[in-house]
């Protein structure tokens, strides 16, 4: 099977990989780059566990071909904390106990961060609809939604 060479940017760093054309960006991240923070819950775009940012847009990496990453910028959960400092959402998820098993958590965090970047004052309903593509089976979403709303509040008051 011939492979294609792809040059891309991942979490701000240049990255290169070889992949088969049929491989998804999620396959590449997990199997070729050992960035296993993005999870495969379904492989069909229904669960959001593989959420990443592609050129600043929230996408399911299971529905992107690896070759499509050529020349583009990918951000994953591994790039969310700055060194030892957690992103405020990561911190709030811990404080609110917004995770139980934690397998959906990376996807939720990436998706929630994308929300707060376009809307720093979302209503509960806006949070719920924005995150409707991220499935969580443990929490009933209650604490996740609270953590996101609380983060937004803190981010707003830090700016004020």
């Amino acid at each position: 099977m011939t492979k294609t060479a792809v040059s891309t940017t991942i979490n701000g760093d240049a990255a290169e990989f070889l992949c088969e054309t049929g491989e998804t960006l999620l396959d590449v991240l997990r199997d070729r780059l050992d960035l296993t923070g993005s999870k495969e819950g379904c492989g069909t775009g229904d669960c959001g566990a593989c959420s990443v940012m592609l050129d600043g847009r929230l996408v399911c990496s299971c529905l992107v071909l690896g070759v499509e990453a050529q020349g583009r910028a990918v951000e994953t959960i591994e790039g969310m904390a700055e060194g030892e400092t957690l992103h405020p959402l990561q911190q709030k998820f811990l404080e609110h106990a917004a995770l139980q098993c934690g397998v959906c958590t990376p996807g939720f965090l990436v998706a929630a961060k994308a929300l707060l970047e376009v809307n720093d004052d979302p209503s509960e309903s806006q949070v719920r609809y924005w995150l409707a593509g991220n499935l969580c089976r443990c929490t009933g979403y209650d604490k996740i939604v609270r953590a996101v709303l609380d983060t937004a509040k803190d981010m707003r008051s830090a700016r004020a």
């Binding site: 960035l35 296993t36 923070g37 993005s38 999870k39 994953t76 959960i77 591994e78 969310m80 904390a81 957690l86 990561q90 998820f93 811990l94 995770l99 934690g102 397998v103 958590t105 990376p106 965090l109």
Partner: peptide, 11 residues
């Protein structure tokens, strides 16, 4: 917790 919010936890 930190492992699970940073993607470091191994499933």
């Amino acid at each position: 917790g930190v492992d699970k919010v940073t993607g470091r936890a191994r499933f």
